[in-house]
Design a protein around this nucleic acid. Structure first.
Length: 283
DNA sequence: CTTTAACCCTGGAGGC
DNA sequence: TGCCTCCAGGGTTAAA
């Protein structure tokens, strides 16, 4: 399940592997992803140079100036790896981009929740694409402030955990990091988002920044060559998880058993003692 | 508008 | 060993 660190690491790998090289071929073996890969996509970009690879939330933006941008999402099981273009196709390898000089990126996605979309330059700025236009601010950017968070949750009755997960306020906080960030900020996941106090927001913003930043730096070292790696991606989150998937295990701070609940059909983990819904009198 | 729930798909885990 | 069921998960969309 690629979270922000894996997506960012993938972006770096694509940048190092293929930016500046013309695309010479793009075989597609399986078009049925989250949405079908457009039939015409290869013809739109073959012969053009990958000019940049950017990221917006968990979306990768492969710029083929001046014709347009390929929008890639890794879903929850997708990965992009560098390989020799003649390497045997493996199960769930769905397409590859072959660049001049034998450089090649292959898209692999067992569950096919990912997407490979095409946004022609004639359709306007890629950030105006329907998938991108409603995204919240970048968590590691200047726009993610306490005031922005408070404005985003104002009047909302859904839980703070679900508000974070929705991605309309801030992007990149997946199911794992939502639990981890709230634990770090000592906020109960079921708190109504609109009831978030300024004091809580002042803890939550840095908690999110630190949680993602830590994961990014550790992911950066663990997955430095993610795109070139041969091993399976993944397990490094759990290395650093304090509560996620830790039901029944003692809280690192107070020893209380970590609790698991379900919110919006998603698992949430928290410490029932450190993360109180209401302030209780301590005798 | 806001909120909820179903859905897409497969690998892995657990039961028998 | 193998078969069956169940579940997780991000993000979109339909429905309430």
């Amino acid at each position: 399940m690629p979270e922000l660190p894996e997506v960012e690491t993938t972006r770096c790998g694509i940048e190092q592997t293929a930016v500046g090289y013309p695309l010479v071929d793009m075989p597609v073996r399986e078009r049925r992803l989250r949405w079908p890969i457009p039939q015409a996509l290869p013809d739109c970009i073959i012969g053009h140079t990958l000019s940049a690879c950017e990221r917006r939330g968990k979306y990768l933006l492969m710029r083929f100036d001046p014709v347009g941008t390929v929008i890639v999402h890794l879903g929850m099981s997708g990965s992009i790896r560098s390989c020799d273009p003649h390497t045997m196709w493996q199960t769930h390898d769905h397409l590859q981009w072959v660049f001049e000089g034998g450089r090649c990126l292959r898209y692999h996605d067992p569950r096919r929740f990912g997407a490979v979309l095409w946004h022609p330059a004639t359709a306007g700025p890629v950030l105006a694409h329907p998938r991108l236009a409603t995204l919240g601010v970048e968590p590691l950017g200047d726009a993610f402030t306490v005031d922005h968070l408070l404005a985003g949750v104002k009047g909302k009755s859904l839980s703070i955990k679900q508000a974070l997960l929705a991605g309309h306020i801030v992007v990149g906080v997946g199911n794992i990091y939502a639990s981890e960030s709230l634990y770090r900020a000592k906020i109960h996941p079921e708190l109504a988002a609109g009831h978030l106090s300024r004091a809580q927001a002042k803890r939550l913003v840095p908690a999110i920044v630190e949680t993602l930043g830590d994961a990014l730096s550790s992911g950066g070292s663990t997955l430095r060559d993610y795109v070139n790696a041969t091993g399976e991606p993944g397990a490094y989150f759990t290395l650093y998880a304090s509560v996620y998937d830790k039901q029944g295990e003692p809280c690192k701070r107070c020893g209380t058993g970590i609790k698991r609940i379900v919110q919006g059909q998603r698992a949430t983990y928290f410490c029932p003692r450190c993360q109180r819904l209401k302030r209780t009198k301590t005798a």
